[in-house]
């Protein structure tokens, strides 16, 4: 693949373009410059380190190292997922970890085995970026789904208790909020799928095309990855809500905190 057009120098041009934005922020008293500089700095450093590290990992291409790398990604995803969930707390670590790991890993193996049809099931060039895509998307969907679910139960406490008295089964009484959580994740995804490609080319495809791949190759991968992401997100939310709710309700079916 030929990627010669972006040099380190040309990246600096883009950074220079931040200067007017910083000036505008100063002028308009929008106090995000510190945050902006810090975010850009972190992005550059993080991606550079990842780049160096991936270069090393790709050269080794050792299945064990690849798997270990994916496990680290899952761990980081779970930690940042817990931080962003209202319910929070260490007691949810295991449920959230499983919600990230189970759907993403299953899909990763399936994808590599049947879709990408790889000779080496866990080769670095596929495993790591695809796992990243799946986990990154799981992160946002788990946060949205779990938060929507618990917000629904908390804000409608009387409703929930009344349903509970009518059904006397927690699962039945929680079902409406569960549905809401799942829809909060599925609806934007389906809307995104409907319009994909019409306005903006998705990031992965853009990257592939700029990197020199044929548009049709990029499109095939894009379709495959979209489907994979949708399924993983959907399942991750289900697993996250089901497993966390085992720890967030007491034996009298009351939401704890």
């Amino acid at each position: 693949m030929e990627t010669g057009t972006v040099t380190y120098g040309s990246l600096c041009y883009l950074l220079v373009l931040l200067v007017p934005i910083i000036a505008i922020n100063l002028k308009l008293k929008i106090f995000i410059n510190k945050k902006l500089v810090w975010a850009v700095f972190r992005m550059v450093v993080q991606l550079s380190l990842v780049g160096l590290f991936l270069k090393f990992v790709f050269e080794l291409d050792n299945p064990l190292i690849n798997v270990a790398y994916v496990c680290c990604m899952i761990l980081v995803a779970a930690i940042s997922g817990i931080k962003s969930c209202d319910m929070g707390g260490a007691r949810l670590f295991f449920p959230i970890l499983v919600a990230f790991a189970l759907p993403s890993l299953s899909m990763l193996v399936f994808f590599n085995m049947f879709v990408a049809d790889l000779d080496h099931l866990l080769n670095a060039r596929h495993t790591i970026p695809i796992a990243g895509m799946l986990l990154g998307n799981s992160l946002s969907s788990i946060i949205i789904g779990v938060n929507t679910f618990y917000k629904g139960v908390r804000n409608n406490r009387k409703e929930y208790l009344y349903s509970l008295s009518l059904s006397n089964a927690r699962v039945e009484a929680l079902m409406p909020y569960f549905r809401k959580g799942l829809l909060a994740v599925a609806n934007p995804m389906l809307a995104g799928m409907e319009t994909i490609g019409l306005v903006a080319l998705p990031g992965m495809m853009t990257g592939q095309i700029l990197g020199g791949a044929l548009p049709m190759t990029a499109i095939k991968y894009q379709i495959a990855i979209m489907l994979a992401i949708f399924m993983v997100q959907y399942l991750a939310v289900i697993v996250a809500i089901v497993l966390t709710s085992m720890r967030t309700f007491d034996s009298y079916d009351q939401l704890i905190a």
Binding site: N156, K158, E159, L161, Y162, S163, S165, L166, N168, S251
Partner: peptide, 18 residues
């Protein structure tokens, strides 16, 4: 718990239905 609740029908003042 479930058996006991199953014997009771509760109507709240606002009838908190969805």
């Amino acid at each position: 718990l479930a058996a006991c609740r199953g014997k009771i029908c509760y109507v709240s003042q606002d009838v908190d239905l969805r």
